[in-house]
Structure formats: structure tokens, C-alpha cells
Design a protein around this nucleic acid. Sequence first.
DNA 1: AGCCTTTGACCAGCG
DNA 2: TCGCTGGTCAAAGGC
Length: 426
Amino acid sequence: MTGFSDNFAVMGEWVDCSINHKKRSKAELDRETFLEEDVENKDLLQTSFQERSSYSGGGLSERIAARAGFNIPNINIESNLWSLNISSPGVSPATLLESPVFLSNPLLSPTTGKLSSLPSDHKAKDEFFDPTLIGLEHDDSQPHERTHDSGSRNSMASSGAPADDGYNWRKYGQKLVKGSEYPRSYYKCTHPNCEVKKKVERSREGHITEIIYAKTHNHPKPPLNRRSGIGSSGTCNDMQIGGTEQQESFAGTNENIEWTSPVRNYGSMQVQSGTQFGYGDAAFFNDEEDRTSHMSVSMGYDGEADESEPKRSSGTIQGGLPTQTQNYHVHYPEPHSRSEGLVTANSSLYDFQPSMRPPWAGFSVYGGETELLGLSISGLAIGQERFSMPATGDPAGLMLQLPAVGTSLTTGTWILEELVDIQRYE
DNA sequence: AGCCTTTGACCAGCG
DNA sequence: TCGCTGGTCAAAGGC
């Protein structure tokens, strides 16, 4: 396996897709050049992101960080199953895209930061697209790609701004909790009568290491015109992908929220997913008691494939020759009185060598009962240059697929992985 | 002026 | 009861 710089090259390409090419700063261009050069020298790589329960707060992260040389973020969600219940009939792609699970973790799905969120300003770009934010911080032996954006990252850290999930938050406290290396910030949703709170732990560098949500929003997300539009409902903003240009739109409903969004789509992308997150009992999500239950989401990275592979046990991505594999786990310490769940999201990315192996990422779902649902997301776009297109540079025909089987569990631990398959066709 | 972060103090739960 | 800990309050200040 090559160093993580490979991954960073990949992720850098991924995440940077939202940046308007014409507006790139010199630093960005320099970085890009470096990344492209870096990619060209890569062997196939395969890394694994191990997902585990994280409620203990960073123990795993620390272990992995110590071993792999970078930090592991954990995302915990308390009583926030709406964030995972993305496959209920009628659920919209926006729900998927807006899920705090995804929004908070650009790596979790190509449909997150890099595809659905398009922060136009540099700060936002770094916040959501900086691999270090989601725990893929380089070790010192891989010094490249680490200096140009440190300022913005640090500025984010200093501001204490929470991960932008589309809602407005007000920080009302900060504490250094025992057992945690980093201070924990407390945020409340600023919407009147909304009791949602979240706790965010950040590293010294400002990387989010843990997010814990409590309760659910009782209101739609605020308008998009915020500094970062990543979480705006059903809005994918403009996407730069190059090549053929199309106009598509998202339209649908997100529960009580109607959403429609014109999407500037270059090329063609399709996302398919059938994912049943959550529990079989629909009433669960309406039950106040359940709302106060606890769920945690953690992301982990395991730099050693020998440990991670057996746990992944994913046949969905066999033959895919993924060069980068990430597992994100969602743990429900106390989802509700009936069960405890463990959700694992797995994504894999092909290397983006100029040889143009089709980039793809994988998520698959495992669990007891399974249910296959269809979810199509059109209008997503991936930046042409982000995939290091071949000389022809033809970006048309990017396809993103999320074939996934869902699980509806009532007992025991369950694991969910979602397969995102991004294929490029010509 | 309004909204935000910061930060020390306060409170409640627990062993 | 006391100390520890996590969570919240609220004043102060910044933008």
C-alpha cells in the first residue's frame, strides 16, 4: 500500500469538485498540480477505514492515529435517526445528501461535500474538503498538501464554527471533558422552539473529531444563502464538472419539506441507492422517547488492510479493485428500547491515475432483514479535473451508483454499508 | 442592534 | 457529604 498521500490525492480530487475552475486561487492550482503529479506516481492503493463504536470518545481514534499517523473523527448522533432514515418510501435524495452523517463526513459518500455541497468560498471549501477534517491528516512523512490551507482550517478552528449541516447553530458552551483529548463545544439550534443540540469535539487543528446530535429539528432548514450552502435542502448549487453541460433539477419532497433545485450538471451522473437505515418500526421516529435515545456515528480509519478486510466482508465491491476503501461506522449505543445498531458505511475509491481506471466508491449495507429500495439522484456532478480525466478530457458520462441493500432491524447489532459505485462510461 | 463566541460560574447526577 | 464530571447559564466582548 502506498502512503496516504495517495488517498489525499484522491480525496483532494474528489472534494475539490465544487470549486469553480476559473476562480481557483494560485495556492489551489499549485496544490492541484502537486496532487496530479503525485497521482501519476502511484501504485494501486488500498486502504481501509474501520468503523467502530466511538462513544467512549476517541480511544480508537487515538489508537489508529498513533498507528497510522492521522486523526480519526467520530461522529455521534443522539436521537437523530432522521439522519439515517434515508430510504423510507418517499424519502428524497436530499434527505440522503443532507444527512448529518454524510454532511459531516465528506468521505462518507461521494455525494456529500464533493458532490452535493458546493461551498464557493475558500474557507468553506477547506472546511468540508480538507481530508484532515475527516481524519485523514497526513503524518509528517507526507508533508505535501498541508500548508496552503492550514490558515483556513485554523481559522475555522478558532471560530469554533460547527460543521455546516444546513442548520444554524449557536454555541453556548465549551468544556474539556474527561477522557477526551479535545474540548467539546455545545451548540443549540437557533431556530425558535427547536431543541436540537449538538456537541462537537475538535482537535487542536480544528478537525472535527466527534459530533453528537440530540433530538430532531422540528423545522425545515434555513434558506441557503448562508456562507456555506452544503446543507441546504435539496440544493446542489452549481457544480462544475466540465464537458457536456446539462440542466437538470432535483425535485421532490423531504417529508414536509418540498425541495427543488436546479442543478447545473456537466456530464451525466446517476446515483442509485436502496438503503434502509434505521429500524423497521416507523413509529420509532415519531416517538419522543426514541428521540431521546442515543445513536453515535463514528468514522475510523485503519491503515492496515489486514485488519480491516475481514470486518468489511463486502462482496459488493469485489472485482472493483478499489484502491481506497473507507469504512464509516454508525453506532447506536441506545437507539431505543428495542435494539442496538451498528451501522457501517463503506466506500471505496478507485485510484484516479491518468490511466483512468473508473473511479468509484462503494457503500454496501448489511444486516438482518434487507430491503432494496430505489433512490435516484440526478444532477450530481463531479468535477472533470477532479477525476484526472485522460488527455481527451471527456467528462461526459460520469455515473455514480449507490447500489445498496438496506436493513431493517429490530434486534441486535446491525451493520450497514452502502455501496457507491461511480463509474465512468463513455 | 442583533447575533455570535468566549469563558467562568453554576447546577445536577453519580460514586 | 464531598468531589468529580458533564452540561448549561449568562455576562462580556467582538463582528
